[in-house]
C-alpha cells in the first residue's frame, strides 16, 4: 500500500542553517502519526514542506491525495463570519462536504453568524479543523492542535479528529511537544530532534521492541541489545535498550512507556530507530 506521506532525503534550509536535513520517512495510510520533538526540532518545517508551504532545498516530500493543514495559530479570517468561513472553504476547494461541516458546527453549538474573530480558543480550533475536514482530505496535518487550549477543549478537539478517523480512511499527522497528549490517540511515532529524524515507526512495535533496564550502577551494559540511552545516578543505572530479552539477572527489565521511549531518544541525539523505507508501507 502506498504511504499517505513520504519524505525522501528531505532537507530544508532557512538562510544558512538547516531546519531539516536528510529526512526520510513514510507514514502508512490510515495511521494517526505523532510528530514529536523539542521546540525548534523542525516539526513545523516538516509539516510546511508536506503541505507545500515550503520548497525543500534537497530531496522531496509527497502526499498521496489531498492534504489539509491547520497551522498552529489556527488562522481564520477574523472579519469573516463562521458561515462566510465555510463559503471560503467551498470556493477554495474542489472537494467540499458543506453539510457535514454545518452539522459538526451545529453539534458543537458554534453559531454560524458569529465573526471568526469573536470565537473562543476552543471554538476557533474547532472551526479551523471543521474547515479542514470538510475538504475530505486523505491526509490531515495539524500543527500543535492542542496548544493553547484548555483541557476540555483539548478533549473535544481530539474526539472530533478521532471520530473522523473512525469514520473513513484518513491519515493524520499531528505535532506536539507534550508526549502525554498523544498517548491514547496516536499509533505511529515520528521523533525529530534538531532537524534530524530519530524515530519513525509503529508505536506498538516500538514499545514492544524497547526495554527499560534498571540495576546496580556497576553492572556491565547487556550484550545482544543496543543501548539507546542511559542514566546513572549514584548506585543505580537506568537504560533504555532496543531488542532483548536481557538474560543478565542483575538487570530488571520492563516495557518502556511512550514517554520514556521518546525522552530516551531525545536525550541521545546520536541514537535512531528508523525502519528501512521498504518495510514501512506494508
Amino acid at each position: 500500500m502506498r504511504p499517505a506521506l513520504e519524505a525522501t532525503g528531505l532537507g530544508v534550509r532557512y538562510r544558512r542553517s538547516w531546519a531539516l536535513r536528510d529526512c526520510s520517512l513514510a507514514v502508512p495510510a490510515g495511521r494517526v502519526a505523532a510528530l514529536v520533538g523539542p521546540n525548534g526540532a523542525g516539526k513545523t518545517t516538516l509539516m510546511h514542506a508536506a503541505v507545500g508551504l515550503l520548497r525543500p532545498a534537497r530531496g522531496s516530500v509527497r502526499v498521496a491525495g489531498e492534504a489539509a493543514f491547520v497551522a498552529q495559530d489556527k488562522p481564520l479570517y477574523d472579519g469573516f463570519t463562521v458561515a462566510e468561513t465555510l463559503a471560503f472553504g467551498r470556493r477554495m476547494n474542489t472537494r467540499w462536504d458543506g453539510d457535514a461541516a454545518a452539522d459538526r458546527l451545529a453539534r458543537l453549538g458554534i453559531p454560524l453568524d458569529r465573526k471568526a474573530g469573536g470565537l473562543s480558543g476552543g471554538q476557533r480550533a474547532q472551526v479551523a479543523i471543521t474547515l479542514a475536514l470538510a475538504r475530505r482530505p486523505d491526509l490531515l496535518v495539524l500543527d500543535e492542535p492542542l496548544a493553547n487550549l484548555d483541557p476540555l477543549a483539548r478533549h473535544d478537539v481530539m474526539r472530533a479528529i478521532m471520530a473522523e478517523v473512525a469514520e473513513r480512511e484518513l491519515t493524520v499527522l499531528l505535532s506536539s511537544h507534550v508526549v502525554s497528549d498523544l498517548e491514547e490517540t496516536c499509533d505511529w511515532l515520528v521523533v525529530l530532534n534538531d532537524g534530524r529524524l530519530q524515530v519513525s515507526g509503529d508505536i506498538e512495535d516500538l514499545l514492544a521492541g524497547h526495554l527499560v533496564l534498571t540495576g546496580p550502577a556497576d553492572t556491565p551494559s547487556p550484550a545482544g541489545v543496543s543501548v539507546v540511552g542511559e542514566s546513572r545516578t549514584g548506585r543505580q543505572a537506568g537504560l533504555l535498550v532496543r531488542g532483548g530479552p536481557v538474560p543478565d539477572p542483575r538487570w530488571r527489565a520492563r516495557r518502556a512507556s511512550l514517554e520514556e521511549l521518546v525522552m530516551g531518544y531525545l536525550r541521545s541525539p546520536a541514537s535512531a530507530a528508523l525502519p528501512g523505507l521498504a518495510g514501512v508501507g506494508a
Partner: peptide, 8 residues
C-alpha cells in the same frame, strides 16, 4: 472514540 478521544 467520540467519548474517550482515543485512537479507533
Amino acid at each position: 472514540v467520540e467519548r474517550l478521544a482515543i485512537n479507533p
